[in-house]
Amino acid sequence: MRTAFINELIVQARQHPEIFLIVGDLGFSVIEPFASEFPDRFLNAGIAEQNMTGVAAGLASEGYHVFTYSIANFPTLRCLEQIRNDICYHNLPVTVVAVGGGLAYGNLGYSHHAVQDIAILRTMPNLTLLAPGDPGETKECVSWLSINPRPSYLRIGKAGEKSLHEVRGIDGIPLLVRPGTTDIALVSTGGILDETLAAADILSKDGLMAPVYSMPWLKPLSPSSLSILAPYRALVAVEEHVPQGGLAGALRENLPHSVPIHSISVSESISSMVGSQSFLRNESGITSNHIESVFRHALIQWRSFQLPTP
């Protein structure tokens, strides 16, 4: 996704002279094409995220649309107050980009697991929060942000993610990735879309055609923006994020209480064992098999409500 990000940012920067990229001394072998094509609109701020974010706000106050770029929690939690006060309070066009959302930097350890960011940044005023699920969604997010400069957070994966569907705009609503027929739908945000689609594949072998939605657009949300999800009897929400305040939380806040949300998320407990993203997903129970079993359980639960009382 980081390649899709930088490629689209270069395309957009050719059309939008106000786009400016600041990196926090990270992005080796990713950001160089931007830096060489737009040296006057590029900066390595060093390993100093508070200053990086304040500088970004200062540049934005003079007309630039600034993208700050670093990995995992560094561009978000390390400088959260600069995001809150400098960017959001002043409603300035700065897009904070975190590479390695969720468990993408799995074997680098807990410091590099970005699993609280959505909950925290979702509370920031004026902020638009986007978490694309594949390279195509990433491209669309960058395209949308370039036309709509504003306080924003873009949470992307790392590298090598497969393209999972054709995306035509992100539109502020859940994207139907795979149509289905069941009364219960799968909804995912971010890079866990691949496991969610794999779960749907498993279910389809038993004739259960589960609709799959991807939700790159996580804020702002309203009941009307989620109206496409309201008719379902239940939703299974999948995210590489702790259970509190992320996708499941956003759905619960904006959908009628009559739609139960079954959350599949990362445990907030800290594993001291190192492992790849897929190992850690397995440890956390956010694999296709687990998604499939939660879906079946949700379906049984819903059908049991439908049984006539003896």
Binding site: N51, G54, V55, G58
Partner: peptide
């Protein structure tokens, strides 16, 4: 620029000066 939490003005000023 609005401040109140300390340590925000100089980074922001650096951004303006760089602009």
């Amino acid at each position: 620029f609005s401040t109140g939490s300390l340590g925000h003005g100089l980074p922001f000023g650096c951004g303006k000066a760089l602009a």
